[in-house]
Write a protein that binds this DNA or RNA. Structure first.
Lengths: 294, 294
DNA sequence: CATCTGATG
DNA sequence: CATCAGATG
């Protein structure tokens, strides 16, 4: 049985205030594994929806308040040659980028305090790799994969591309998992269950909540992986990581949980916490934070 | 001989400060005709470079400080159906709009306290009229024509279109002039002489200062019209109405005089002043103001 | 270095 | 309602 966390009525719908200045202390955590081991690895993942716009909105301050060991960004929407210097060179971190062949589309970044043993761009599927959606970093005792999964598009225009992605990416993760345990994070562009979005009924035919996409996520979990947030908080409602900019959705918490840390089953004993940082602004997603004892 | 105005070294290069709040009193004028008649008609012309962006930058405050009888705007870049209500309905004015067939391109507006006897959209040249570049308002004792003349384009890509415009538009103005005197204003997209731009040497091959465009303007004047500003201030240097947004040109006054009031020769005795309102911001052009005794 | 559109999300 | 690109100026 997963360790159920205490739930209160108030923490169901996190109060968000974009103007409130965040303090480093608010991000402190003494989370521990089930066996009482403290965390010693922190990973932050954030879909930045354009890294240049996000930079101007002070997105980089996430490094000050979180001080993560690893930071993963999705939807950088910027070729490497156009990256501002503040994005390219971050003190204390090695950085890695993939870009789409189409300028200003997709793109993923990975920052790491410790230099990985190896870094792999894409996952040997040319069509998908050409869109700059995946970076894998190999560490001593795990692989970190960060990804921006294809959006099924308005009117499900690109659902086919998405459904091509799911099995291929799952296969890739399984292959990695045979070598070392895997921590995969990013914008998976799906809300798994009804609890994972504000309006499940109205979105069954929309990108991010079709049966096909939800089944793809289920199959990933069946392949030996765990949705770390839902594992820790199986019944916690109104926990979202994305809100459309339209209709004041973020202030009203009409959102979707699209961003995840998905970990190999055998890493569950080392899981300390998965936090959703709704107090941080800079994109239509908020960052998520994983705490592990490695 | 034209009435030469006093020139000082300091008013050659107007000091501009975008943050300075303008006061209505700073726009007062007691200009008179050569014969000492005070002005009783004020017309303001402004290339707004996108009327929606200009509105957000408080461009409409020109009405408060100038209180013109007629306001002409060029490059509205907005089809009538997309015009914000504040643009469409202005208290105290009748308003008229032309739009380009291409959404977000060109477009001209005219606001008038007194309802014109008639209003004409375009000048019966289909190619040009499809680009929403001209409105003519007929008044008791004059025609007002406001226009946004085709830009010759980067690398003079559209110089041909421009050179097609010049004789046709000139012919149109001459025909009007046979009926009533004409006041024509707007962005003529040419600096007539070397004195009319900061860098004449470097721009002889560029849109706005080619020999063809300059000759077109000369031919217009030869057809019985007068550049009212240059008539009043024949030697006044560094008087520009446009500065590219690039390279901090406005602060450095590296500009062009592209916006004009061109009037029928027989209106010259009624001319009181032509002012360049460099203290007003909201676009890459500044407004110009004509004072007439009609 | 601004405006705009149109694609994308 | 945001990001981006690309056209236009």
């Amino acid at each position: 049985m997963p360790p159920k966390r205490k739930q209160t009525a108030t923490d169901d719908a996190p109060k968000q205030n974009p103007n409130k200045k965040v303090k480093k202390e608010d991000f402190d955590s003494d989370a521990k594994t089930k066996d009482g081991e403290p965390w010693n690895l922190k990973i932050v993942s954030w879909n930045v929806d354009g890294v240049r716009a996000w930079l101007k909105k002070d997105g980089m301050s996430v490094l000050e308040v979180e001080d993560p060991d690893i930071l993963c960004l999705q939807e950088t929407k910027c070729s490497e040659k156009k990256l501002p210097d503040e994005i390219k060179n971050v003190k204390g971190y090695k950085s890695y980028f993939v870009e789409a062949k189409t300028e200003g589309y997709s793109g993923v970044a990975l920052y790491s305090k410790v230099e990985p043993i190896s870094v792999k761009y894409g996952f040997d599927e040319k069509e998908h790799d050409d869109e700059g959606r995946c970076i894998t970093a190999e560490y001593e005792n795990f692989y970190l994969v960060t990804t921006y999964v294809p959006n099924a598009g308005k009117g499900l225009m690109t659902l086919e591309k998405r459904m091509d992605w799911d099995p291929k990416f799952r296969k890739y993760l399984k292959e990695l998992d045979e070598k070392k345990p895997v921590i995969m994070c990013g914008d998976l562009n799906v809300s798994h269950k009804e609890i994972d979005l504000a309006n499940p009924k109205g979105n069954k035919k929309n990108a991010g909540f079709t049966q096909e996409e939800r089944d793809g996520f289920t199959e990933l979990l069946n392949a030996g992986f765990v949705d770390s947030f839902r594992h820790l908080y199986p019944d916690k409602e109104k926990q979202y990581t994305f809100w459309t900019y339209m209709m004041n959705c973020r202030a009203r918490n009409i959102g979707w949980r699209l961003d995840y840390f998905v970990i190999s089953e055998r890493l569950v004993p080392q899981l300390c916490d998965n936090l959703i940082r709704t107090s941080l602004y800079g994109s239509d997603h908020c960052p998520i934070t994983l705490l592990m004892h490695m």
